[in-house]
Amino acid sequence: MSVPVVIALHYQNDVLHEAGRIKVGLGDDDVVRANLISGAKRLLLGARERGWPIFHVRVAYRPDYADLGQNAPILRGVAKLGAVVDGSWGADFLEDLKPLSSEDEFVVTHKRINAFYGTILENLINNFNTKQLIIAGVATHSVVESTVRHAVDCGFEVTVAADACASADNEVHVASLKSMSLIAKISNVSEVMEELS
């Protein structure tokens, strides 16, 4: 019997840490950040307890950003901020959400908004013979929504763990979840763990 696969998006220092350079995911609201990190920790712990594979997806670029296509404002903003440089603290995973050394955990690095685009993510997921994905991360309206839409087009059934996602503007977060509800199940971590176990 196949098990669900978790895709955890951009739980990185530059995105989540108070000293991080990117604010597109979260503003300076400590409550929002704390709630997101709590949800993400519960998602990763629950997946580990159940033996579900976890794909930790990070975004990272060369120091000269020659590998960053700057055809969109959000991408140009990354270069302007000097964020997520490969090998830097900012590109590393937040300490509480970092991958463990395990045969069930993988790290995938991408360069675009959609975590599938230009990566081997789909091929790796297919090794587990599953059609059920649980997707969460930062920011909801950006990498999460883009990745969810691609996953659905690939034929996966997707559940979004909403309390392990966030956007700097909560109205944008809510609107994105509503938009994704047409193609994916919107749930919370506790419900996901109960329903898919």
Score class of each variant (00 low, 15 high):
residue 114 N to P: 01
residue 32 V to T: 12
residue 51 G to V: 12
residue 153 D to F: 05
residue 171 E to M: 12
residue 150 H to D: 13
residue 73 P to C: 11
residue 39 G to P: 03
residue 53 P to H: 14
residue 36 L to W: 05
residue 104 D to N: 15
residue 84 V to P: 06
residue 111 K to I: 03
residue 139 A to W: 01
residue 71 N to T: 01
residue 123 N to T: 12
residue 150 H to I: 02
residue 64 D to F: 06
residue 183 I to N: 00
residue 173 H to V: 14
residue 1 M to Q: 11
residue 161 A to N: 08
residue 135 I to D: 09
residue 161 A to L: 04
residue 156 F to I: 00
residue 39 G to S: 08
residue 154 C to P: 04
residue 112 R to H: 12
residue 170 N to P: 04
residue 66 A to E: 11
residue 11 Y to H: 13
residue 20 G to W: 00
residue 196 L to E: 03
residue 57 V to Y: 01
residue 61 Y to L: 03
residue 24 V to A: 07
residue 91 A to N: 10
residue 91 A to D: 09
residue 43 L to A: 12
residue 167 S to V: 10
residue 65 Y to E: 07
residue 78 V to Y: 03
residue 52 W to V: 11
residue 13 N to P: 03
residue 77 G to N: 15
residue 40 A to S: 09
residue 21 R to F: 02
residue 14 D to T: 09
residue 43 L to V: 02
residue 102 S to L: 09
residue 48 R to F: 10
residue 79 A to P: 00
residue 156 F to E: 05
residue 181 S to K: 06
residue 160 V to Y: 01
residue 26 L to D: 06
residue 68 L to D: 09
residue 154 C to M: 14
residue 14 D to Y: 06
residue 192 V to F: 01
residue 107 V to P: 03
residue 6 V to G: 02
residue 107 V to Q: 11
residue 60 A to Y: 01
residue 56 H to Q: 08
residue 77 G to R: 07
residue 37 I to R: 03
residue 197 S to M: 04
residue 141 H to V: 05
residue 70 Q to V: 07
residue 106 F to K: 11
residue 107 V to L: 06
residue 65 Y to G: 02
residue 134 I to F: 04
residue 11 Y to D: 02
residue 59 V to K: 06
residue 132 Q to I: 12
residue 101 S to D: 14
residue 74 I to K: 00
residue 92 D to R: 12
residue 177 L to S: 03
residue 121 L to Y: 04
residue 141 H to T: 07
residue 59 V to I: 13
residue 59 V to Q: 05
residue 168 A to Y: 11
residue 90 G to E: 10
residue 180 M to E: 02
residue 44 L to P: 01
residue 158 V to Y: 00
residue 78 V to M: 12
residue 102 S to E: 08
residue 123 N to A: 15
residue 184 A to D: 02
residue 106 F to W: 14
residue 106 F to E: 05
residue 165 C to H: 08
residue 50 R to C: 04
residue 190 S to I: 09
residue 56 H to G: 04
residue 42 R to F: 07
residue 165 C to G: 07
residue 53 P to Q: 11
residue 49 E to Y: 00
residue 100 L to K: 15
residue 150 H to E: 15
residue 25 G to W: 02
residue 66 A to T: 15
residue 168 A to I: 09
residue 134 I to L: 13
residue 99 P to F: 14
residue 127 N to Y: 07
residue 89 W to S: 09
residue 34 A to W: 06
residue 158 V to I: 06
residue 24 V to G: 12
residue 133 L to K: 00
residue 2 S to A: 14
residue 126 N to G: 08
residue 102 S to A: 13
residue 147 T to I: 04
residue 138 V to L: 11
residue 115 A to F: 05
residue 47 A to E: 01
residue 38 S to Q: 13
residue 149 R to W: 06
residue 30 D to A: 15
residue 10 H to N: 15
residue 28 D to H: 10
residue 165 C to T: 13
residue 170 N to F: 09
residue 176 S to I: 00
residue 70 Q to L: 09
